[in-house]
């Protein structure tokens, strides 16, 4: 192995550490890639089939949304959750973490529209 004689990566621990420092992104990427392949082929407990649940069988879930000065996005997010999910037995719980903009007013407006929207206001974060 003449290359090993030229580069001497195993001559001292520091050379080896340097080698790992240079190569770890490639090794990490390869390990990740192998992990995906194994998950697809070797792993036997994957969930691949999903079934639509009738509303009476649906367990009740709470969707939690942390919000701090989100006046730009909050109405869009909540409208999306309330109207576009294929699930009915849920509530949305927004935690308004001391917003100083219009977020509380927007949430108050939305609460008139949606019965399953709950709001926790943290007065001081």
């Amino acid at each position: 192995m003449e290359v090993l004689q030229t580069l001497k990566p195993f001559e001292s621990i520091w050379n080896f550490v340097l080698l790992l420092l240079v190569s770890y992104p490639i090794l990490g990427a390869f390990a990740w890639f192998m992990g995906v392949i194994c998950y697809q082929t070797v792993y036997r407990h994957r969930h691949t089939k999903f079934y639509e649940l009738a509303p009476k069988d649906q367990p009740f879930i709470t969707i939690m949304i942390p919000a701090h000065n989100e006046e730009v996005m909050i109405a869009h997010t909540i409208d999306y959750l309330m109207n576009s999910l294929n699930y009915t037995n849920f509530e949305v719980l927004v935690t308004d973490d001391g917003s100083t903009d219009e977020t509380p007013q927007i949430l108050a407006e939305l609460q008139k529209k949606y019965a399953n929207l709950r709001v926790i206001t943290i007065e001081k974060n």
Binding site: Q111, L117, R118, V119, T121, I122, E123, K124, N125
Partner: peptide, 12 residues
């Protein structure tokens, strides 16, 4: 069941 709740600073 509360729809709107305010957490006071001393409750944090």
């Amino acid at each position: 069941n509360v729809r709107s709740y305010h957490v006071k600073p001393e409750q944090n």
